[in-house]
Amino acid sequence: MFCRQVKRLLNDYVDARLDASRKQRLEEHFASCEACRQLSAKMRLLRNELQSLPHASTSDQFLRRLQAELPSSPKVGFWQHLAESWIRLTGVPTVRWSAAGLGIAVLVILMALPHLPWKGEREQEVRLAQSSFAMECVEQHATYTNDQTMPDTITLAQDLKEPVF
């Protein structure tokens, strides 16, 4: 038997729950392994000590203090009831559900971002900037080449209806 296997059985050995054959194999191992024998002896000693610790009791004022703080009836609020029922149903604490919900909400917002209503306004701004820049280029070109065919003003509305690019 290896030390690793012994450790798996040590709780049951200390609590005297092992069957005779396993107990014998374990004790054979102890004869040749000082570390496991020591650990077993210490664990048995500890178990006995823990079981012999004196039991503490509440003070005389305990009940009086508790009675003063107890509400009149054991009824719970609606939301608390709902949360607890949900936990009982799913076995998952509300904190985890909240975290998961938050994560999903962020994901949905990120996915919906390109389709949000203000997207059109943003596109218009971009197109306006693009067309202004294009017009500046054209005007510059016309200046250099003395082109007189360029109109003096081009309205913004025309830009938007018929983009240069």
């Binding site: 503490a56 509440t58 305990f62 203090r65 509400p71 054991p74 009824k75 719970v76 009831h81």
Partner: peptide, 24 residues
């Protein structure tokens, strides 16, 4: 800690009382 233990034990019973309807 003896004093804190009594406070916590009180809290346990208070919680148990208010959530008793949930104990199935």
């Amino acid at each position: 800690n003896a004093e804190d233990a009594e406070d916590v034990t009180q809290e346990v019973f208070l919680r148990a009382f208010t959530r008793l309807q949930l104990f199935r």
